[in-house]
Write a protein that binds this DNA or RNA. Structure first.
Lengths: 219, 219, 219, 219
DNA sequence: AATGAATGAGCCTTCATTCAT
DNA sequence: GATGAATGAAGGCTCATTCAT
């Protein structure tokens, strides 16, 4: 973390690549140290443990690129703020579009096998963001019950996240060129319009016990 | 599962659990064999290799539970068929809701580090399903260009898949009990209504070059 | 051994090749069985053991090609009989000149790491031959003490055996074509003349205690 | 052997014994390390591989005891130099008379299954020695054709080498005590006198095309 | 007589970690 | 602070052997 401790920083950098490429178990401490131009014992010296290095690496990953603030004022209308939220979210998702990108893989790994690092990330990064999204949705549909708001939020988040998580499969399904044409601008517009149209047009079922009448009501 | 439970089958079963829990590298052949009640050399005897066992395991995973046919006739309207599609998809997604479920993890692993097995899965399982969804969407909005149809399909798939991929995080964000309340029935209705409302209400931008006017048009 | 048990014979044949190529430890029972077109368990079934198979194989090796009788009558003079002996010996040595020949290697292996099979070979094959050579030498130099006769015999045997044992090195030293020009005819004549000239011309030291005077006497 | 006896040297020492006793395949890395008082992983750390260790061991074997220079001046007559050569050669051959001696077996193994190490040995050690012998023989019989000189050289080398290669068999044929009586002094005198007598008395066939007249001449 | 699925011992190798320097 | 030789635990894999068929 110190400016004056480049070895430590280089180790985290190298560890990120290695962990993302190989996973925790398959990652080799020797390889990490060689990539970082450090000694074999450097990891144990600086972090004490391979696992400790992993945790610090994961935390460091989310620390980067997170300093960005919401790109529009709080006084804007909920629709504008939702569009801004989606655009911002998608930008982050697509920014690491390269499947070789180690931050990409490292975070997906955390989804599968959440470690202690995940808890930190949820508390410091993810939940605040989620709460902001919930605020916007509540403004748009104040009468919606909490559960419905959660589902709405997940519908939005899911649409965005798919372009990170589903990329390898989606690319194989519709072809690389087809996938490439789905750029940030288009997707921001698409998901925003899709979601706002849905949010405005949906009729919420009065209670959870009777979803079918609501479904029929859509028609 | 069979009455006759040969060693080979038990090995794949055990391998699935082990690979899903630990990942490929961290998985121990010894553990797999012990779980299967077989000898240490059983894996090498039956599959020749740890990697071969992995491939066969992944392929076998998708083979299971895939025999189900679309739950509604082809002559039904597109809305009905879309609801059926979502319901069916969600059912599969939530069926393995247990984060300990090895099929869950095994498939997520393939998303991150696609192996040769992934190609087979896409060709035999995923692409056919995706094409069925595209047909439905084309019926609903025949004038939409291909790119837009892809985006629509991914919006739907993304919403559903999130409940598989995002589960660990989502659970930590809104709490387990909150997440549990989002059951299959509710989510099927929600995603179906959400998506159909959006599909019907959306106004598609005439060209990709001008997303902003379309965005303004929403309002 | 039975005419009606071809599997057993084929196993010995295959074992010979495998043992010669790889040595006892590196030889694989599976490979032997495959070469013999037999089952994996065939070796254990027919010979009980890998080691038993080895012993029977080595014995079988020397059994082949040993039925040849001395090519000249016992009433010939010692010089003629020595030439015949050398010619016969060399013929056997050079007959398996191919360094890939498994009998070659198998017998060399026995020289290095004599097993129980070696004892049998010495008793049944080698010692009788050696004694015949000793008889010839005794006729040529009846006054020579036993030790000298041994040395003479080993000088002759050594010259011949070198073309079996030293072949790989000799070939590298003087080149393959140079080595090839040393054919059976030439070598038989050479070693015979060389040895007979020596035997006739040598002056034996009266006692082992004074080799130097003898050495001086040569000059 | 050194005052500072580093692990690497001890490993080669121990490897030599183990490889000679058991052969490459049957040799156990664990045993080598235990003999060397080193860790199981020492071989892989220092040599990377069991095979690399073998190569380095074989090369090291011939390196030892090879620093000796020809024991007599170059200005001595060819007879004296031949005696010196034989004495020196025999000394090296008999020096490792103990059949348990690992250098003995290791070199014989190379004869049977020459590896890359053999090429090095031939080039650096064996061929120079062979050439010195050829020089001496050429002085003794300048009119001899190259092929004949080769045969002469091999006759001398073969006689000497037999006491290394044929030892296990020879001992069984004439008994241990008989073999023991053939000590360095006696054998040096014997082989020298035998060979010099032959070289001086032999009548070389005029051409390679007619070996038979020489054979006939014996009668 | 012959098979081949299954076994279990053991080997080479890898890898994170330590410790003297 | 940093090194690299050395460690020991453990893993994947091979192989001879067995046993029910």
């Amino acid at each position: 973390m110190d400016v004056q401790d480049p070895t430590r920083v280089r180790l985290i950098q190298a560890a990120g690549e290695e962990f993302a490429e190989k996973g925790f178990a398959a990652a080799r401490v020797r390889e990490i140290c060689e990539r970082a131009g450090a000694n074999v014992a450097a990891v144990n010296y600086h972090f004490g443990d391979k696992e400790q290095l992993y945790v610090e690496t994961v935390v460091h990953v989310h620390g980067c690129g997170n300093e960005e603030e919401p790109p529009c004022g709080e006084d804007a209308g909920p629709e504008t703020r939702l569009r801004a939220f989606i655009g911002h979210f998608l930008a982050r998702v697509l920014a690491i579009q390269d499947p070789q990108d180690w931050r990409h893989r490292l975070m997906l790994r955390e989804l599968i096998l959440p470690t202690a690092a995940s808890d930190v990330l949820v508390r410091t990064v993810i939940r605040p963001k989620f709460n902001r999204l919930m605020e916007i949705l509540r403004e748009l549909r104040p009468e919606a019950e909490e559960r419905r708001l959660h589902a709405l939020a997940f519908s939005i988040v899911g649409q965005c996240m798919y372009y990170r998580m589903g990329r390898p499969v989606a690319e194989r399904v519709i072809g690389s060129e087809g996938f490439e044409s789905l750029d940030l601008e288009f997707l921001t517009e698409h998901i925003s319009s899709f979601s706002l149209a849905a949010i405005k047009a949906m009729e919420f079922a009065p209670a959870a016990a009777e979803p079918d009448p609501a479904a029929a009501g859509v028609k």
